[in-house]
């Protein structure tokens, strides 16, 4: 069985909330940064719920159009940007599912302004946060994580493939997990 994995390619600094606020003022580069951070999580969520790549692509377009239109409604005092973006994406995906009068592959929760506690435990939210957090890792750590977790290769094979000592693979894996735990923060509680 061949395993296929994808590697994100970006490093990030500004908070999601700051980018949303900047996008609300028409800042195109802030919007593009949001896109680079969240295109993959949005596509993953849409794919999981709609079960079709073509429709998931459309849902991504609708999500980001919605983010562009409604960024001004984001209120930072009500919470960080990630849950707000998740809610926008989920609503867009639900709308797409309903517009076709089709049952989505995974029945979504009722659309809401912000995700409730139940949402935070659901698989979609976990994948959303983890895939977003992966974008924060340096390239060499992302590569090791992807190979170690999802390629089907053993640690020794990862080391051989990357041409680095086995100890370095383990060191990078540990560093990556440490960084991920910092980025994920309360997700670990």
């Amino acid at each position: 069985m061949a395993y296929v994995i994808s590697l994100p390619t970006i490093g990030l600094m500004t908070s999601d909330g700051e980018l949303i606020q900047a996008a609300a003022t028409g800042d195109r580069s802030a919007f593009e940064d949001l896109y680079r951070r969240y295109a993959r999580p949005v596509f993953g969520l849409a794919l999981r719920r709609l079960g079709d790549r073509g429709r998931a692509e459309d849902a991504v377009q609708e999500t980001f159009a919605s983010i562009w239109r409604s960024a001004g409604s984001y209120q930072p005092e009500r919470g960080p940007g990630a849950p707000w973006l998740y809610a926008v994406a989920r609503n867009a995906i639900v709308d797409r599912a309903r517009s076709r009068s089709e049952i989505p592959a995974e029945i979504p929760d009722e659309a809401a302004d912000t995700p409730g506690p139940a949402d935070h435990t659901e698989q979609g939210w976990v994948a959303w946060r983890v895939h977003r957090a992966l974008e924060e890792l340096p390239e060499r750590e992302r590569e090791v994580i992807a190979l170690a977790y999802w390629s089907g290769l053993s640690q020794s094979e990862v080391a051989e493939f990357l041409g680095i000592p086995l100890g370095t693979v383990k060191t990078r894996t540990r560093a990556a997990l440490s960084r991920l735990s910092e980025v994920l923060g309360d997700e670990l509680e």
Binding site: I5, G44, V126, A127, R129, V130, S181, E187
Partner: peptide, 13 residues
């Protein structure tokens, strides 16, 4: 816990 979340999330699409 970070490891468990990675496993739970699966690979990014």
């Amino acid at each position: 816990r970070a490891h468990d979340l990675l496993v739970r999330a699966g690979p990014p699409p």
